[in-house]
């Protein structure tokens, strides 16, 4: 025996929806904060010699905000692009595009984080 509510719970179009809406806001707030910090860091380091940039990026207070921006950014951009795809692409191509979107976000996130950690922990 199930109640009427129990039968429909979790059966929305994608079994979720408000979750991604909320996560898009949450990552948006994180982005707003850490974009400003990272922009400052990048401007301060732009055009500087390699050794100087590496020395700066090694500092935890420099690496951490960039790392947080990367994680928050790729989650945010994946949700945003998925929504754009779902608005304009339909059928088979949509499935491909949605998979490619996740692939791109994971690739960008993983490779950039790896680069940051490689610098942090030294070569």
């Amino acid at each position: 025996m199930k109640t009427a509510l129990g039968r429909v719970r979790g059966l929305g179009s994608a079994k979720s929806g408000t979750d991604t809406f909320w996560l898009q806001r949450l990552t948006g707030v994180f982005n707003a904060v850490f974009v400003v910090i990272t922009l400052g860091i990048v401007i301060a380091l732009a055009g500087r010699p390699h050794a100087e940039v590496i020395a700066a990026l090694r500092h935890p207070l420099v690496a951490l905000p960039i790392g947080i921006l990367i994680v928050s950014g790729v989650i945010h951009m994946r949700i945003g692009m998925k929504e754009i795809i779902e608005d304009y692409v339909h059928g088979g191509p949509k499935v491909l595009a949605v998979v490619a979107n996740t692939f791109f976000a994971v690739l960008v996130g993983a490779s950039t984080l790896f680069a940051l950690l490689k610098i942090s922990f030294g070569v």
Binding site: T38, H50, I66, M77, T112
Partner: peptide
């Protein structure tokens, strides 16, 4: 702008990956 930033992330990625790769 959201869509442009999606690909623009590659600018930051390339900069960091190049820094990690060497001078």
């Amino acid at each position: 702008t959201g869509g442009a930033l999606y690909f623009g992330t590659l600018l930051l990625a390339a900069w960091l990956i190049a820094a990690a790769s060497g001078p």
